[in-house]
Design a protein around this nucleic acid. Structure first.
Lengths: 206, 206
DNA sequence: TGTACATCAGTGAACGCGCGTTCACTGATGTAC
DNA sequence: TGTACATCAGTGAACGCGCGTTCACTGATGTAC
């Protein structure tokens, strides 16, 4: 029952503790001391592993992007193997991830407390976003030169899904749904995603 | 040159001071004490006008929504009098407002420090968002029952424009543009807005 | 036109709080020989 | 197989900081008579 002097894997434990706080109390409550408290460790101990608070948050955000990507990949995998179904699955996956980890997503997307010069973070973020961005990773791939139109299409999709997610987290979707009786937020979200898929046409030409 | 004991219009001065801090140093630096310092007044003086920090932030955000709406209305007014041009003008206006007042927009959209039970704030927000949401305020208006499809269309537009704006403020648009030589963020944004207008078709039927 | 007095709007000192950081330390682990 | 010792990973006390809030106060304004 006695706690050994050394933790064993404080690095992992701190990341888990920080995420627990994020999910439970939101991004405002996530401080170095709070995370150390959660991990049942002196608040100076994490310094050996992360340097400072920014280091901890940056690693946590990077891990978030990796997991987001994994989840989106899995969703796309399970969808019917056509572009429309795949895009729809990606959109749903993005929204679902946001609902499951609202605090983490906030840290990843809107935090000014991250060190974006960290290669781990920036490549994790870029890689994750590229999923929503690439039409068909197998088909197009490296060969396809990413022209202006492709980039516009990518940014359009990302904007729509990301904006929808943000509005959802901020309670705006609920507010809109409440204006018309018998309309559920859930149905609204599904409606927007369907519209994305149908109007998108997956065509880089404008 | 002597400062009189009473300020005269501290309410207005505090709002201006808070906004100055927001624009200059970002939302993280906006505290009650900082705003009072900026207004050259004891940090306890604002209490008489706003109660507490939340009260001040809530009023500032409400004023932000009112001004956003005013600006969007003006942009729409100046556009060609057809639905497409109007929608494009609204989208451009939203992005332009975000660029002009990034800190203020963050406060309005992503702050957990606002009192959303305040009627002034909630109606200001709703009214502003309705602009992007209604196709034609004159044409449709009250007569048109706001059905499910209309709501989906509204949320789609709002999601796209809002998502684009958020990504822009977080530097993601710049990051994407940087991946392809000779593509400017400005052109990307314009491309997305054009795509919104062209694919939107302004048709509530899905 | 004056005066008494309540109310309003600001001051300034003090409070406790949680924060990140620094510092000297100690217990545990691993490696050289 | 032992032992010396450097290095690593954690403790615990102390620091200064800026925060929002409380409190007793004071100067200015407005209103009743």
């Amino acid at each position: 029952m006695n706690k050994p002097y050394h933790h064993g894997d404080l690095r992992t434990a701190m990341l888990a503790a920080a995420e627990a706080i994020l999910d439970r109390e939101g991004i405002g409550a996530l401080t170095l001391r709070a995370a150390a408290r959660e991990a049942d460790v002196t608040h100076t101990a994490p310094r050996h592993h992360f340097g400072d608070l920014t280091g901890l948050l940056t690693e946590l955000a990077a891990s978030g992007f990796v997991r987001l990507r994994t989840r989106l990949l899995a969703e796309a995998e399970m969808a019917e193997p056509n572009p429309q179904s795949r895009l729809l699955a990606l959109g749903r996956g993005y929204v679902a991830f946001a609902r499951a980890h609202p605090g983490l997503l906030q840290l990843m997307l809107r935090s000014e407390r991250l060190d974006w010069s960290s290669p781990a973070l920036s490549t994790a973020a870029t890689t994750a976003f590229e999923l929503l961005t690439d039409g068909e990773p197998e088909a197009g791939g490296q060969a396809d030169p990413r022209g202006f139109s492709t980039l516009v299409l990518a940014l359009t999709r990302l904007s729509l899904v990301h904006g929808l997610t943000t509005l959802l987290l901020d309670g705006r979707v609920e507010a809109m749904a409440a204006k018309v009786p018998s309309v559920e937020a859930e149905a609204l979200i599904e409606g927007v995603l369907m519209r994305l898929v149908q109007r998108d046409i997956l065509d880089p030409q404008v």
